[in-house]
Amino acid sequence: MERFERDGLVFDVRDGGPPDGEPVVLLHGWPQDSSAYDRMAPLLHGAGLRTLAPDQRGYSPGARPPGRSPYRLREVADDVVALLDAAGLGSAHVVGHDWGGIVAWALGAWYPERLRTLTALSVPHPGAMARAVLTSDQGLRSAYVAAFQVPALPERLLLAGNGRALRQLLASSGLPDDAAERYVAHMLEPGALSAALAWYRALPFGARDRVGTVTVPTLHVWSTGDVALGRTATEATRDHVTAPYRLEVLDRVPHWIPEVAAERTAELVVAHTRTAA
């Protein structure tokens, strides 16, 4: 499977591993793409799992609708349901990092029948996150979200000098240089960064997209070196899951868990998928 369509949008997909293996959907965040899982995916394949890693809405060149509202959480979550339908899958394991983790939380609350297990890398449950913004240093950590709401200026600043500022931002947060170069090159494509930032800019349209209680087996992986996401929301996340839940903390690992801690994360995901057998 190389692509799928939804409402006239065309999404690119990396489909790997044994075709008859347990399916695992891998969802990337900002400003990544499906290559975020290049180190993890072969390890999952070696364990007999099939992986489907889409370039999500705004990241696939054929799926960059204009405006902000097309990037509401409900829309990007429904893109994953469309992927499952196109692949002929009634359900799958879902792993999401960063924004992909938020999508995974939404799927676990809205479409539990389509998930065998849920793995959220880095990001806590949105309900826990919202509370932590008001009660901890999470508000300061998340200040960039407000900055991204400004039209056009973030693109101008981040892409100046062939993406120099974006490259420096990613490197300073612990992303390996090769991955930073890859993601910056992708964001330099016409319209790509604006489409990626539209996920943030759509937040004011998401009042009805509340993510409730998750009822599927959940693994939450958080790292102490994450400058964007603190411990308060991480520890409160268990209150938003009624199914079996496990928190795994990676010491001194930065935000970029799939790229930096691929081996350990793959081990955790493989073990988690087997709990649903």
Rank of each mutant, 00 (worst) to 15 (best):
A36N: 02
G139R: 06
G127R: 09
M129W: 15
D33A: 11
A87S: 08
A185N: 13
W222T: 12
E248M: 01
A143C: 06
E259Y: 00
M40P: 00
Y183C: 09
E259P: 01
D178P: 04
V123T: 15
G161S: 13
P112M: 11
P66G: 08
P19E: 13
R201L: 14
T273M: 02
S136L: 01
A47K: 04
S69E: 15
P126F: 14
R72N: 03
T218H: 01
V227D: 02
L170K: 09
A132D: 03
L140S: 05
V133H: 10
G161Q: 05
A236G: 11
R3C: 04
V184G: 07
A87E: 12
V94R: 07
P66C: 10
Q56I: 14
P176Y: 03
A87R: 01
R141H: 10
E248P: 02
L84H: 02
M40R: 02
D55L: 04
A228I: 00
S142T: 08
G101Y: 07
P66K: 07
D55T: 11
L158P: 04
V94K: 07
W256M: 08
V221Q: 08
G67T: 09
P31A: 05
G58V: 12
A266N: 03
G212Y: 10
V211C: 09
V25H: 08
D239I: 00
V103L: 03
W256D: 11
T242Y: 07
P244S: 14
R264L: 12
T117N: 06
E248A: 14
P19R: 12
S223D: 03
L134F: 03
F11V: 02
G29N: 07
Y245T: 09
V227H: 05
S91N: 07
F4T: 05
S35P: 01
R252V: 05
V241Q: 02
A271Y: 06
T234E: 00
A202C: 03
H28A: 03
R252L: 04
T218R: 06
V24Q: 01
A196Y: 00
R167K: 09
D178R: 13
G230P: 09
L158V: 14
H255C: 13
A198F: 02
R246T: 15
S142N: 15
A277W: 11
S69R: 15
R116D: 08
G46R: 14
A36Y: 07
R39L: 15
A228F: 15
L27V: 08
A180F: 00
D137W: 00
P258M: 12
A147F: 15
G88Q: 06
L188V: 06
T234P: 00
G88F: 09
A92K: 09
E155Q: 15
P66A: 15
A271N: 05
V216E: 06
G58R: 09
V81R: 04
V103P: 03
R116S: 05
Q138V: 02
L26A: 09
V150C: 01
H97G: 07
L169K: 13
V260P: 09
L268I: 12
P151C: 11
T232S: 12
P244W: 02
G191Q: 05
S60D: 11
R274S: 13
A86S: 14
S172P: 07
V94E: 01
L107H: 04
A185Q: 15
E263Y: 00
G67C: 08
L140Y: 04
